[in-house]
């Protein structure tokens, strides 16, 4: 009986400990590479701005042309890191359940950190452009002219969705085979398009034909983003919860 009680207690502690270790590894890895990524993005934005001003072809800011790469960067990193992290996580005494929990939490806080960074850069760019007397505009986003909080929330939802989609791509091939995995990419692409469309974070048109700018559109857009995160999180749970780790036959 005492062994059973000890096991129950150690099970609860083990779940939390391995989830946090997974979060540190996966989320920490994404944040660390994010530092390099954002350094490159800021450098690229400044170079583009300088070149545009030299040749007088400034067209309302540079960030809107480079921010779209963030999601694909995190998508790729998610795809690569998940392949490395799952065997390590299981070998260090974790379960798939704590892996999925760590993955989901990482996607949210990495999305949030990058979302805040993106919104802060957009705000900073707007202030700089106005101070220099240059024409500045940001065509994306749910709020015309931009809103730090809404932009940060939108980017967070988009980036969290893309990170989770990245982790789902290899899982699709492993669980559904070559053909199934190929069709699975189309399903993932549909979710990616939906979240872009919903929060109007890319070039795909948002809610404008259905709802005019205002609180309702903002809430609908963010609600769509939350739905995309929820759907991908559900898929991550289904695909990874009983994922076998296959050894070489031996």
């Amino acid at each position: 009986m005492s062994a059973t009680i000890d096991l129950d207690e150690s099970g609860r502690l083990a779940h939390r400990r391995t989830m946090l270790a997974m979060e540190k590894r996966f989320g920490g890895g994404l944040l660390l590479t994010g530092v390099w990524y954002w350094t490159s993005i800021i450098f690229a934005s400044i170079v583009i701005a300088v070149l545009q001003s030299r040749f007088s072809v400034l067209e309302g800011g540079t960030l809107q042309y480079v921010l779209g790469s963030t999601r694909w960067f995190l998508f790729t990193m998610g795809m690569i890191l998940v392949a490395v992290t799952l065997p390590l996580h299981l070998a260090s005494g974790g379960t798939r359940s704590s892996f999925v929990a760590g993955l989901f939490r990482s996607a949210l806080y990495v999305g949030l950190a990058n979302g805040i960074m993106a919104a802060a850069l957009v705000t900073a760019e707007g202030l700089t452009w106005n101070a220099l007397g240059w024409d500045w505009q940001f065509r994306q986003g749910l709020v015309p002219g931009g809103s730090f909080i809404v932009d940060a929330a939108s980017e967070t939802l988009v980036l969290a969705t893309y990170i989770l989609i990245g982790t789902l791509l290899p899982a699709g091939f492993q669980r559904l085979g070559a053909w199934g995995g190929s069709f699975w990419i189309l399903a993932l692409l549909a979710i990616a398009l939906f979240v872009d469309w919903s929060v109007h974070s890319g070039y795909i048109f948002g809610w404008d034909p259905l709802v005019g700018a205002g609180t309702a559109r903002t809430l609908l857009g963010l609600g769509g983003g939350v739905l995309a995160v929820a759907v991908t999180a559900f898929a991550v749970d289904r695909f990874y919860r009983d994922m076998p780790l296959r050894p070489a036959l031996g």
């Binding site: 099970g11 299981l90 070998a91 359940s97």
Partner: peptide
């Protein structure tokens, strides 16, 4: 006396260390 199915059982797998030939390292 308290053996359980190890699959997705945090209490059990946290007490099992399998060192595979492949390594499971970074």
């Amino acid at each position: 006396g308290s053996e359980q199915d190890p699959f997705e059982n945090p209490a059990i797998v946290s007490g099992v260390q399998l060192v595979r030939e492949a390594g499971d390292v970074l």
